[in-house]
Design a binder for these strands. Structure first.
Lengths: 253, 253
DNA sequence: TAGTGGTCTAGACCACAAA
DNA sequence: TTGTGGTCTAGACCACTAA
């Protein structure tokens, strides 16, 4: 399964007529190149003066884009040496929205997906409340089993506001990426999300699906995702095997 | 239990002879004021021009400090209106190192601590490996039960490199803050940490201490903390009750 | 209209790394 | 010595908010 990047049609230099800030355009261009593998891990990316010339930008604007990349851990900067592509870390799972596929690739595993359910349902009360909707609104529900190296890793239950993406369930999400379909077919780009992380006990069904002993501990994430218009579009529940999955992050004093 | 802030002796304007960057000094001054309650939640903090004048700084330097506060969620900025103190969010638990006391206060609960163990032990192999030390080095071990509103919330097991903080266990850490003692008595300031988050099953002893049913799911955090010299000084294991404790954070696309 | 934050520029000096 | 990133400045224009 190949995930197309969000920025396939991205131009390779900044567009001064765009409404997007120049520093953000530069950030997206460089991020795209880094994720595409334009440079090896540890390889130096162009210097600030080079980027200034290539994109005809001031140093402050260039630095703003570079600093964002550094803050997000995609590059590290060394005074007197240069800026270098950082190793892909698992940390991104706690700061950036990444797909299961991307997540497993970073962890060096081969992802696979099985669709368990795919139907239209009236919004349950708890889901409606999380999304700030009226209960009973039509939702597209998609439940998927996610596997890594052919072993079950997690169960994902996704609720999408169907009026925003009518017909979204016609695709086969065992092989297609949901976020790609949302962007390509419905113009919905998920830019922000809030999530809560808990430890829970596996239900009988979950234990069977995940092939773990009954009542095993699971890492449980509930996530509300927001579109570019800042509208809540998806409610997601993910149950990860406690014995296989962990989250990593770094803290500052 | 009163936690003294790290910056009790902080001057109220920037020091141009300090080695610290001016934007960072401004950030720390404002952060200190916000945490001290100088402004109410939702109240507007001084505008950029005011800060420029008060501290005799350029706008770019002021903005750099303000943007860091905004990135860390302490303020939010609104074009045309001003910058405002944000509600203290639980998010900070996933980006900033905060004490149990601070954490519980943010969650509106009253913290209490009981010391379960406090002794010197040779470093176990796994702990030594995580800290990059030779196994068998002398470690101060401190195990504490943390309570919120008088109900058990978590078990914390802390391993400190004893040669960095000899005699550290002489204090009573039921009432004193470990991080305060490290800074005040041993000159160790913990500035950075890496952690891994998992879901595990409670042992019999853990279940008893936390007053949860046997084999309950727990949120388990393993953390390595680094000093201002970037030396690993502490290895920490925290077991949180799965039914009471959750982590919150926000993601970007 | 006045005041706020958002973006962008040109230019300067410094600290650090490598040749 | 050269080139890198780190810090800081003055000044400009824009977009948004509120009166």
């Amino acid at each position: 399964m190949v995930l197309h990047d969000d920025y396939t049609q991205l131009r390779m230099t900044v567009n001064r007529h765009s409404s997007l800030p120049l520093h953000q355009q530069l950030y997206e261009i460089l991020r795209h190149k880094i994720l595409q593998g334009e440079w090896e891990v540890g390889e130096m990316i162009p210097t600030e003066p080079e980027l200034m010339q290539q994109h005809n930008l001031s140093r402050i604007t260039v630095r703003r884009g570079l600093n964002r990349l550094a803050n997000e851990g995609l590059i590290y900067r060394q005074q007197g040496r240069g800026s270098f592509v950082a190793e892909q870390t698992l940390e991104q799972g706690l700061t950036r929205i990444i797909s299961f596929t991307e997540d497993m690739n970073q962890r060096g595993m081969v992802p696979r997906t099985e669709v368990l359910f795919s139907d239209l349902v009236p919004s349950p009360e708890d889901v409606a409340e999380r999304l700030g909707l009226e209960p009973g609104a039509e939702m597209a529900r998609l439940e998927r089993l996610r596997l890594a190296n052919d072993e079950p890793m997690s169960i994902e239950e996704s609720y999408l506001v169907h009026s925003y993406c009518p017909g979204v369930l016609e695709d086969n999400y065992a092989v297609n990426a949901l976020r790609e379909a949302l962007e390509a077919k419905h113009g919905i780009r998920i830019l922000r999300a809030r999530q809560i992380i808990r430890a829970v006990r596996a239900s009988t069904r979950q234990a069977r699906l995940l092939t773990v002993p009954a009542r095993s501990p699971l890492l449980f994430i509930e996530r509300v995702s927001y579109s570019q218009q800042n509208l809540p579009v998806e409610f997601l529940r993910i149950y990860y095997r406690g014995d296989r999955y962990s989250l990593y992050n770094e803290l500052n004093g």
